[in-house]
Write a protein that binds this DNA or RNA. Structure first.
Length: 308
DNA sequence: CAACCATGAGGAT
DNA sequence: TCCTCCTGGTTGT
């Protein structure tokens, strides 16, 4: 369920507390026993996120590739350092219902073993596919759709299949034109193209719905019928939303909220979005009931009046 | 308890 | 278009 912003935050957390350390790698659940044994005791030398994929490189070049899919999450225990200035760090990232959040105050570096287990390291809870551990910090991965060890060439091949990700690209303008080309050359609905990770990486079902609403664009519009300037606006908006999501740690997509409204939306997910998850509720702009339909097996929310 | 659901994606048909 | 995998929270009987 995590979209791109979550994976970038996870990459930051791993860089902050794990890169530069020798890592004890285990698979409490057992389903990653061989991979864990291969990586165990090596130094983590770098972590990158591209789209929804995470690449953790160990000394010697092996890359741990993780994709959280719908259910995956990382839980962090022990020292969980702040990853964004002026903000709390959250001890768990991924599928929201999995959050056994350990919230830590600004600037706080604290040794603790989780909310209900004041020992370190804590016993693994549930089906932990991989545990990465330093002497001070633990990262538990559960429920990933992909978790494998790749050599650098294979890892790069995965990256090469992905479209641009604003948070892993240094040339946003060049990336923008790649997206323009990949959208406007297709007859597939733009609502599907935004979810296609080879077109643009990191967008999921929530950001898809919200980007289209913010652009007031009908999700059914064929890619080739979307004017290039509208694709550019979508891309620039994705740049903004992703950056905000990485900093805030939540998908607050309503640009009409003031600081207080954003604070309330952070506490109440029902206030975060224009249309996502609001089937039958009045559009926040025109009052028309929000429509939900299936598009390529995923729920698509949109306003039939504002988006055309 | 079971059934259903979720911010995902690959592969078979 | 369907099936499968992965985990766990919520809802219903």
């Amino acid at each position: 369920m995590p979209e791109g912003h979550t994976v970038h935050r996870i990459a930051r957390q791993l860089r902050r507390d794990f890169v530069g350390h020798r890592i004890a790698v285990t698979s409490p659940q057992g389903r990653f026993a061989a991979g864990a044994e291969r990586l165990d005791g090596r130094e983590l030398v770098g972590v990158e996120a591209v789209g929804k994929q995470l690449f953790a490189t160990f000394d010697g070049g092996d890359v741990l590739r993780v994709h959280l899919g719908l259910y995956g999450a990382w839980d962090f225990h022990g020292v969980v350092s702040p990853i964004v200035d002026g903000q709390v760090a959250v001890g768990s990232m991924g599928a929201p219902r999995l959050r056994r959040a350990v919230r830590m105050g600004e600037g706080e570096h604290e040794l603790r073993g989780g909310a209900d287990a004041p020992v370190f390291p804590p016993e693994p809870v549930g089906a932990v596919r991989v545990r990465l551990a330093t002497t001070q910090s633990v990262a538990d991965l559960r429920g990933p759709t992909a978790c494998e060890v790749l050599d650098p060439v294979a890892a790069q091949a995965v990256v090469d299949r992905l479209g641009p990700d604003p948070a892993s690209t240094d040339d946003l303008d060049a990336a923008q034109e790649v997206v323009v080309q990949r959208v406007t050359s297709r007859t597939v609905a733009v609502g599907q193209l935004l979810m296609d990770q080879s077109v643009v990486a990191g967008i999921g079902n929530i950001y898809r719905a919200e980007l289209l609403f913010r652009a007031r664009l009908d999700p059914h519009t064929p890619g080739r019928r979307v004017p290039p300037d509208v694709v550019r606006a979508l891309w620039r908006d994705w740049v903004v939303l992703l950056d905000d999501g990485i900093r805030v740690g939540a998908m607050i997509t309503r640009e009409d909220l003031d600081a207080e409204g954003r604070a309330q939306a952070l506490a109440d997910p029902r206030q975060r979005h224009w249309v996502y998850g609001r089937a039958g509720l009045p559009c926040r702009v025109c009052g028309t009931p929000v429509i939900v339909e299936e598009m390529a097996t995923r729920k698509l929310y949109h306003c039939p009046v504002c988006q055309r």
